[in-house]
Design a protein around this nucleic acid. Structure first.
Lengths: 74, 74
DNA sequence: ATGTGACTTGGAGTCCGTT
DNA sequence: AAACGGACTCCAAGTCACA
């Protein structure tokens, strides 16, 4: 997202870092998390790198796969 | 979102209800909230009706406009 | 096992209007 | 003030080949 303002890119990065953090706590690979959340492996990767402006439904899928309430990801 | 599974549409509706709830607490119209969040009037309306799969950046914008942490909206 | 660039497609998001 | 529709633009979603 090259055109997004700074603070908005920061929000995406923070979200990605949080996902990665929780995933590692569970000892999962990106691929395993992707399978649990019914998402693509490379898509999860790009989310963790803060490159994606993830929408609500996928936030819920990730939260469920990570075993936390959705609000915990932001 | 006609193709989305039930529980995912429920998640969108819950989000919309929460936005409407907080907006009314502040005594704002949809248009005033839209202006504060730098979103379009009709878009905020459709979000409140649970018709939109809102993306992360717009969740942040709405949260900011409503004066709550983003996690409070989900 | 993860990063990355490129790609297509569906839907996010805008703008015009009427009810 | 809000719901809703049509027509549009552009980006999120989802996948792939390759590093």
């Amino acid at each position: 997202m090259p055109t997004a303002p700074d603070d908005e890119r920061v929000a995406l990065s923070a979200f990605g870092r949080r996902v990665r953090e929780l995933r590692k706590e569970l000892g999962l690979s990106q691929e395993e998390l992707a399978d649990r959340a019914d998402l693509h492996r490379t898509y999860v990767g790009s989310i963790e790198r803060g490159e994606r402006n993830v929408a609500l439904i996928n936030i819920h899928r990730l939260a469920k796969a990570l075993g936390v309430p959705p609000g915990d990801l932001l």
